[in-house]
Amino acid sequence: MADRAALQTQLERGIAALGLAALGLNLPDGAVQRLLDYQALLERWNGTYNLTAVRDPAEMVTRHLLDSLAILPYVQGQTLADLGTGPGLPGIVLAIAAPGREILLVDSNGKKVRFLREAIRALKLDGVRAVQSRVEDVQGQFDCITARAFATLADMLGWGGHLLAPEGVWLAMKGKRPDDELPGIPAGFALRGTHVLNVPGLDAERHLAVLGRA
């Protein structure tokens, strides 16, 4: 296991660099420790279940925790669905950083859902549920939907557009700016904006496409 104090320093510096406090988005007491508990749990399970290609703990802090926290200013509403969540990215990170909303974690991979349920139990994440399902089979409507490296905009909205509440917001996390995907946005949906995400320590492009109902 990596030195926890070093990881805590890295995470705290990264959170400060994101400027969340300046936006009035102060993380709750104990959030940094719980985020590191989640990272440690993911690291342990990853050795057996291969939940993520990222193996280095410091890289997990950057590529998973800080990358997920970068979208926090755009999250809204009281209900959230994280589609194709994998090991809980960004859903579990958001549940720790901004508790109080109902969160549904959706993935079709059984071993990842088993990990999610253990993480929910171990981290005592109230209001968070994990379901093993294809996106198109999920029911309900949500104020906010997140999807990280999940599919093209056309596919994710085609499969899961029914889950977005009338005034809801869809947050699609992308690497490069998805200009080539914009013509494929289905009828009934519209792009509200595209934002550059500056993830501390990450030497790669990150963009957030924000969509809603037209």
Rank of each mutant, 00 (worst) to 15 (best):
R4N: 00
R4K: 02
A5D: 10
Q10G: 00
Q10Y: 00
I15W: 00
G19E: 10
L20H: 08
A21D: 15
G24C: 11
G24F: 13
D29P: 00
G30K: 09
Q33A: 15
D37Q: 10
D37F: 07
Y38P: 02
Q39L: 15
L41H: 07
R44K: 12
T48M: 06
N50K: 14
A53P: 02
A53G: 13
P57V: 13
V61H: 05
L66P: 02
A70Y: 01
I71A: 03
Q78D: 15
T79C: 11
T79I: 14
A81H: 05
T85D: 03
G86R: 06
G88H: 07
P90C: 10
I92W: 00
A95S: 13
A95C: 09
A95G: 09
P99H: 06
R101D: 05
E102S: 15
D107M: 14
N109A: 15
K111L: 12
V113R: 14
R114C: 12
F115N: 10
F115Y: 14
R117V: 09
A119T: 12
I120V: 14
R121F: 08
L123K: 08
K124W: 01
G127T: 02
V128F: 00
A130T: 05
R134C: 09
R134W: 03
V135N: 00
E136H: 10
D137M: 08
Q141W: 06
D143Y: 06
D143Q: 11
I145S: 01
A149Q: 09
T152H: 06
A154F: 06
A154C: 09
H162S: 13
L164W: 12
E167V: 10
E167C: 12
G168Y: 08
W170N: 11
L171K: 06
K174R: 14
G175A: 13
G175Q: 11
P178F: 03
L182Y: 03
P186K: 07
A187S: 09
R192N: 08
G193R: 07
T194C: 11
T194A: 05
V196I: 05
L197C: 04
V199T: 04
A204C: 05
E205F: 04
H207C: 01
L208G: 01
L208F: 01
V210C: 06
